[in-house]
Amino acid sequence: MTALTDLYQEVILDHNKSPRNFRALEGATHSGIGHNPLCGDQLTLYVVVDGGVIREIGFQGKGCAISKASASLMTEAVKGKTTEEAEALFTRFHDLLTGPSDVKTDAKGFGKLAVFSGVREFPVRVKCATLAWHTLHSALAGGGASASTE
């Protein structure tokens, strides 16, 4: 049961139940749609970028606990960051989830995002945890593009 409790930590359950920034943003400068065909998860992301900085970010959609909590925690993590900082964080976050399970990665500097390190033990769920991030990436790149985990 320990792998499970690592996956479904309190923070994740909380953000699943009451996702933060769960709303559409009027005046979004960037938006994107993310889709995970495997489980039907779908999410729309709204971003207000001003002077290279993510000022506001919100999302809407349906999904499993992991994908919803990940989107919620991502919005908290990237708000106020420059787009470059956000992209760099995505890269590190991705490594945190996909690194070999016997190598302990340094969860330092991830803040609350560190709760997703448990996803590593569940390779099929990595896509759930990264859907919002892929969507952010394509929203920032294209503004209106759509991301798919497949």
Binding site: C39, G63, C64, V124, C128
Partner: peptide, 9 residues
């Protein structure tokens, strides 16, 4: 609870 979470547990 999303079916995906049910399946994992």
């Amino acid at each position: 609870i999303h079916p995906h979470d049910v399946g994992t547990i």
